[in-house]
């Protein structure tokens, strides 16, 4: 059997492709890009939430938020780890992100403007991520699939605590309810955009699907998210900011309005609300921390030399 036949057979039989296996160069490159961007998303995703750690309105919420952000750092770590099994270096991927040459999820380019945003991020944004990640638990590349399984286990806590925080607001004062509706108004459409362009506008999708990197198309996952989530919005006594939203009894799915793809394109091309601030924050942290990283390396090297001597 040739390398390529072995690879295609594994894909067909759903045997995981592992790091030392032969794989087409394009498969390797696609995965490095996808896993790398997924990792960057976890890291940058810490910023909109950490914005509220110091202002969390109760100690319990503060502890939950700190634990969630810590989890996200951990998830970034698992994903960089999976990417590196493909023969790239974390520092190169990270530098590309800092240079604006690799992307992270569009959703994190939106600012968190009130406390309800924190609950809504946990509920809607993590909710959307979970739909995507559950699908990826059966992705063809072994290390990526295993990272997804680990992340999914931890992610359900994130979504539940987000929804709980939203419920507390929905059962609160008029001001709190208004805060929650405002957050939903600002995050609903960006959450739908997280699933990416329509399938017919998505050039890489076909190849990713045939290699079972992706298991479902963007539109199918987006529909799944909408169907899951609309009843939750209603449970909160809130409204989805979409005049065209309607349940279709024939299809059994919710119909929804048109996504503003202009906004999506602006955001992924660096002209969203917070792209500038997110990158500036990560660059600053990296640059300000250079002396610390270098000190640790210098110390390790000196010690290694002493041990050899």
């Amino acid at each position: 059997m040739s390398h390529e036949q072995r690879f295609l057979t594994a894909i067909a039989e759903e045997t995981a492709i592992e790091p030392q296996d032969w794989m087409p160069e394009a498969y390797r490159k696609t995965l490095i890009r996808q896993i790398g961007q997924h990792a960057h998303s976890e890291i940058v995703g810490m910023l909109p939430e950490s914005n509220w750690i110091t202002r969390a309105p109760s100690l319990r919420r503060k502890a939950i938020l700190l634990a969630k952000v810590q989890d996200e750092a951990g998830h970034g770590l698992y994903l960089y780890s999976a990417a590196e099994t493909l023969g790239c270096a974390r520092e190169d991927l990270y530098q590309k992100m800092l240079d604006g040459k690799m992307k992270y999820s569009s959703i994190f380019n939106y600012p968190t403007l009130n406390w309800a945003d924190i609950g809504v991020i946990g509920w809607l944004v993590d909710g959307a991520a979970i739909v995507n990640q559950v699908a990826l638990c059966r992705t063809s590349y072994g290390p990526y699939a295993r990272a997804m399984v680990k992340i999914c286990k931890e992610e359900s806590f994130h979504q539940r605590q987000g929804f709980e925080a939203c419920m507390a607001l929905s059962q609160g004062s008029d001001q709190q309810r208004a805060m929650l509706q405002d957050a939903i108004n600002r995050f609903w459409w960006p959450a739908l955009m997280m699933f990416g362009p329509n399938d017919d506008e998505s050039p890489n999708s076909a190849q990713s699907l045939s290699w079972k990197i992706k298991r479902f198309g963007n539109d199918e996952l987006r529909q799944r998210f909408v169907d899951n989530t609309v009843p939750q919005v209603e449970l909160l006594g809130m409204q989805v900011p979409d005049k065209e939203l309607k349940f279709n009894t024939e299809t059994g799915h919710y119909q929804f309005g048109a996504i503003d793809w202009q906004e999506f394109n602006d955001v992924i091309n660096g002209r969203g609300l917070c792209n500038h601030e997110r990158l500036a924050a990560k660059r600053k942290a990296w640059e300000d921390g250079a002396w610390v990283r270098e000190a640790a390396l210098a110390h390790a090297e000196k010690r290694a030399q002493r041990e050899v001597a």
């Binding site: 770590l77 698992y78 780890s81 999976a82 099994t85 990272a147 990283r293 640790a296 390396l297 390790a300």
Partner: peptide, 11 residues
């Protein structure tokens, strides 16, 4: 279980 980066063994 995965990997990470560190400057020395204790870290």
């Amino acid at each position: 279980v995965g990997s990470l980066h560190a400057a020395d063994d204790q870290m």
